[in-house]
């Protein structure tokens, strides 16, 4: 496994030489710093802890400062651990977008946009009543029956109902890396990525 922390910038589209237009997402990823190297001997498993984005000193706890001092770096905002990192990196080393190459398939993890409290039609794709007549007064988007009558006498667990939607961790798999701009730390992937512009995403493979 290899991965990097980044920020979603926005979307655009690119043209192939035969004129095909592909929607792409721009992600500003890294440079990240390795802040801890975990090994089987010391921690029971192999992993790399990497950090991204500077944090103001007044918001940093003393314990955090000491932790980052070990890697000889300033305090960071976002920390993520990747298990079994395929590239050997030492403490304090930088990770840039160049760990990925053009044409590679990657997974992108992010937090989807929050939609608030939504009904079953939007949240679970129920079809609603489908008709305005035949006794339907104001129930066009109602969920309908929740289950059986006396034979269960309760609503089954996991029954899909209205509620909070969005704001979940979402992984989008198999996005192709179109282009890498190492001097700007930009990485261009096909398709869309969960979350608002400016939200934190993890690119991994």
């Amino acid at each position: 496994m290899k991965g990097i922390i980044g920020k979603k910038i926005g979307m655009t589209s690119v043209f192939s030489s035969d004129g095909k237009q592909t929607a792409c997402t721009i992600i500003e990823a890294g440079p990240c710093v390795v802040t801890q190297v975990k090994t089987v001997e010391s921690d029971g498993y192999n992993a790399l802890q990497i950090a991204y984005g500077d944090k103001k000193e007044k918001h940093t706890l003393q314990a955090e400062k000491n932790h980052y001092a070990k890697a000889n770096t300033s305090a960071k905002k976002f920390v993520k651990e990747f298990r079994d990192y395929s590239i050997a990196k030492a403490l304090g080393e930088a990770i840039t977008v160049e760990i990925f190459s053009e044409g590679e398939k990657v997974d992108v993890v992010g937090t989807s946009k929050g939609k608030g409290f939504q009904g079953v039609v939007k949240r679970h794709g129920f079809s609603g009543v489908g008709s305005q007549s035949h006794g339907q007064h104001d129930r066009q988007r109602a969920p309908g029956s929740l289950g059986n009558s006396s034979d269960a006498s309760r609503v089954m667990k996991g029954m899909r109902m209205a509620g909070r939607m969005g704001g979940d961790r979402v992984k989008v798999k198999g996005l192709k890396v179109v282009k890498i701009f190492p001097e700007k730390n930009y990485i261009l992937v096909t398709g869309n990525v969960p979350g608002h512009n400016g939200s934190i995403v993890y690119i991994q493979k």
């Binding site: 910038i9 926005g10 979307m11 655009t12 721009i26 500003e28 701009f181 700007k184 930009y186 512009n197």
Partner: peptide, 14 residues
Amino acid sequence: MNAAVQFVHEQMTT
């Protein structure tokens, strides 16, 4: 338009 989007557009389109 976002400066980054503009930059990528200038790099990727002839």
